[in-house]
Nucleic acid binder design. Sequence first.
DNA 1: AAGTAGTCCTGAGTGC
DNA 2: TGCACTCAGGACTACT
Length: 272
Amino acid sequence: MPELPEIETIRIGLNNIINKKISQVFRSDKKLRIASTLDLKGLNGSIVKKINRRARYLLINFDNKNSLIVHLGMSGRLVYKTQNNYEKIKHDHFICEFDDGSSLIYNDPRRFGFVDLITTKNIETHSMLAKLGPEPFDEKFDAQYLLEKLQKKTTNIKTTMMDNEIVVGVGNTYINESLFLSKISPLRAANSLNKNEIAMLVENIKQILQTAINQGGSSINDYVDAKGNLGNFQNNFRVYGRQGKECLVCEGDVDRIVQNGRSSFYCRKCQK
DNA sequence: AAGTAGTCCTGAGTGC
DNA sequence: TGCACTCAGGACTACT
């Protein structure tokens, strides 16, 4: 499941489509998460200028002032193939073929993701991007900012940190890991954290996301990068998916609970 | 207003 | 072997 480090890894890998010219676009008739307003004709002849990322959205800017917004949902893959005459496989929903014969393929079995086209200057007003909070690596995301945001939040800290209006790109996997490193229980009310705990949490979120990017993301179930390679960070998980196993810090066991319909993994003894 | 539950989807895993 | 069922979760919508 792609989270921010995986998307960032894909973004870096996609730099080799810059300056390529689209010769043909394919879209399947399957419904993705949001109805796309994609005008296929408008993409033909477009040249890729830049690949950006905002939260978990990949933004592909073209020379004609349009941008593709791509979200990979739970199971989406965005893979670049250099071979000519790429043959579609099951769940390929969107394909850009370039004039040198290479292809960019969006494949998504569960169809939680989407592809949309928007005028680049209006990109921040897109319904999916308009309300997003700061990037975790943005200097605006610091202890003072988070303290203010959490003050009135009575819900648990784990769910709160996955709210995109507070900070973007912190999904289930990395918030579990960040809370473990910060020795904070996922059950704590968000407004019960003191400033030291908040500062530690901010630092650990930044650090764990950066480490994951450096290692090419995590491969759980579906994720591969733009070249189809697996990531490595899953080997570094301290609590995620380790229920019943021994805590790596103390002699306790890792617990699994469900919060707001999502799995949380934590050590009762280490995380208070 | 804030918090919570339901929703979309398919493939992998489990039990009979 | 095959069927039925459950689970995974990002982010929206619709309730309370």
